[in-house]
Write a protein that binds this DNA or RNA. Structure first.
Lengths: 251, 251
DNA sequence: AAGTGGTCTAGACCACCTC
DNA sequence: AGGTGGTCTAGACCACTTC
């Protein structure tokens, strides 16, 4: 009797446990910050080995739905995004009014800038291609909202354009770098944002303090003057769990 | 929470193995499609137990850098994104020229639509709020590029607006639904896209055939006529590994 | 002190792919 | 047939949190 039975795959135990827990989270049965049943609880409830219980929890952790806390438990994850307006926020009125762009984003919530680093560098191949120059000034910094890091950014400017100006000073003054570029007669007029989502590299995980299962959104924004001269190349890395991006445009 | 005071721990073995493999991938030492050292190889090379070798590989898999193939090995992952233009692609010339929007995106590559489903439904709370109606027609479908699913979409239209029109037929004719809305005197003129990135739910994982470690990009696009009437609410779910999104706008 | 998650070992059986 | 990854068990020691 060589005939074998159809291989009617059951889901593995750890997947079924994970599915049940996920349902409880997504249905609202378990709320933000609630404690999930721990490894011991799952071992007892389902009669499985510890590794299997862990495997089930790992699924939810890697999906970004739960966060483990050493010595304490596994918790349902909070999700409080900031709304970031792609088009509106860069409207000229924003920075000509002397306001920082971040006022537009983090309305009401406490925000801060961190780890500011300003350096003159040789441009990478890609930056050199876009900005059409070999030497750039780079402003790197980290943004925090409610004391939690949410974004990394590295703005690149053609060195000859900004050398000796406030663009390369720690404090760029009212309206920020865009207002300063305006002072120099190079007001940004057109923007391109190129956007990807992926899992973070270890450096990004550290700097943004990301739990497992949190993707990042990588944005490259290029700013052009009305004459079409590129004046800024800005690489941003956003904690995806902290953001909703919005773009408005016409047909 | 941000990582608390790092008590100068050494990295666990599995992390160090994962770090070395990641370096080989990111440095280009290992290329797309190359086979990584397997569990047995890692056990021998580092003198660790099987579970530890697996744990190291799991890190890379959950980062989206590697894909396991049963009975075969673990492979470096391919990354061939499609460029999707947020603003330009919806320019009126596109659909008034009778072209499908997808011609703009998947230039040159084979694309297809799949699992088309057209139904009249009661609007969800959110859709009802945005479209200002309780009854909607919904067009659900899946997009494929090079025979691989890359996007799910569900377009919602106010029922009274599109009842009995080509908008709710399988074939919407030249220029697609936007051209048909134009025929009805409701040409879309303004768009809003709201965008998040997160790990997929199991249903999305299945429909898009996503390997572990692949986030999705969820986009909600709302289309408005020149008079400000909302005429479409489109929920899209994109395989993040398959896309680069581009938005162009002015200051 | 007790409980939690983090790491690791040493086995086992299975389904699947490749040769 | 032999190698690969997928699942699972039954232990162990550790660091950390909570009480």
């Amino acid at each position: 009797m060589t005939e074998s039975a159809p291989v009617h795959h059951e889901l593995p135990i750890y997947r079924r446990i994970a599915d049940r827990l996920r349902d409880k989270i997504l249905s609202g049965d378990l709320h933000d910050g609630d404690r999930l049943p721990g490894e011991n609880a799952l071992m007892a409830e389902y009669g499985v080995a510890r590794a299997t219980a862990r495997q089930a929890l790992a699924v939810l952790i890697n999906e970004g739905l739960a966060v483990p806390r050493r010595g304490s438990g596994v918790y349902v994850r909070l999700f409080r995004p900031i709304r970031r307006h792609g088009s509106r926020r860069l409207a000229r009125e924003q920075w000509t009014a002397g306001r920082a762009i971040w006022d537009t984003d983090a309305h009401g919530r406490a925000y801060a800038v961190d780890q500011v680093q300003i350096e003159r560098e040789a441009a990478s191949e890609e930056v050199a291609r876009v900005l059409d120059t070999g030497e750039v000034w780079v402003r790197r910094r980290r943004y925090l909202v409610d004391d939690r890091p949410v974004q990394l950014a590295a703005s690149h400017f053609p060195a000859d354009l900004v050398e000796g100006t406030a663009v390369v000073l720690p404090d760029t003054g009212p309206g920020g770098v865009y207002a300063r570029l305006g002072d120099l007669g190079h007001s940004p007029a057109h923007f391109t944002e190129e956007l990807r989502a992926r899992m973070p590299h270890p450096r990004e995980t550290d700097l943004l303090g990301l739990p497992a299962g949190t993707p990042i959104i990588a944005i490259i924004r290029t700013a052009y003057t009305a004459e079409g001269r590129p004046v800024e190349y800005n690489e941003m890395v956003l904690d995806a769990a902290s953001y909703v991006l919005q773009y408005d445009f016409d047909a």
